[in-house]
Computed example of a mutant assay.
Amino acid sequence: MTSPSGGSDDDGSPGAGSPEEPGDLVCARCGNRADAPQPTWTCSLENGVRQYICDACSRENLRAIEGRLDSAWW
């Protein structure tokens, strides 16, 4: 089946054409839980796996996080 010009193959079902949103988030450092994505949490992609860090752990480890950034980000 082909899509009309300018259309997409997205069938509108959840997860179609977009990354799946996590349900229950767990902080990779302290185990703190949140039932939905939090704007103050940090998300990192490490070895192809998404890891979420709560805002308290992010603040406590800010220097270590910044230390891993390429110098181009400074």
Rank of each mutant, 00 (worst) to 15 (best):
D55Y: 11
S58K: 15
N32G: 07
Q38T: 04
P14A: 10
V49N: 05
R50Y: 08
A56P: 02
P37G: 07
S13N: 08
S44F: 10
Y52C: 08
G7I: 09
S8Y: 08
G15Q: 06
T42E: 13
A72G: 05
G12Q: 07
I53W: 15
T40D: 12
D70N: 02
W74P: 00
S3E: 10
L25F: 03
Q38A: 06
G23T: 00
R63E: 03
E20F: 09
D55F: 10
R63K: 13
N32E: 15
R68L: 12
G48D: 02
S8C: 14
A34E: 06
E66C: 08
C54T: 02
T40M: 12
E60R: 04
D10W: 14
A36G: 05
D10R: 15
I53N: 02
G12E: 10
I53E: 00
S8V: 11
P19C: 08
N32Q: 14
T42I: 12
I65T: 06
P37A: 12
P14F: 11
A56V: 15
D24T: 10
C43W: 11
S3M: 12
S44M: 11
R68I: 04
S18A: 14
L62E: 11
S3G: 08
D70S: 04
C43T: 14
A28W: 08
C54D: 03
I65V: 06
S71P: 01
L62Y: 09
C54M: 08
D35H: 14
G31S: 03
G23I: 03
C57E: 01
I65F: 11
A64F: 03
V26M: 06
G67K: 03
S44H: 08
E20R: 10
W41P: 01
A34Y: 10
N61Q: 07
D9Y: 14
S18G: 06
E60Y: 02
S71D: 09
S5L: 11
P39S: 08
A28C: 00
Y52G: 03
Y52N: 06
A28Q: 04
S3P: 02
G31R: 01
G23Y: 06
G23E: 08
D55A: 14
D24G: 06
C57Y: 04
D11M: 06
E66M: 10
W41Y: 03
A16I: 08
S13A: 13
W73V: 03
G31I: 00
T40H: 13
R68Q: 06
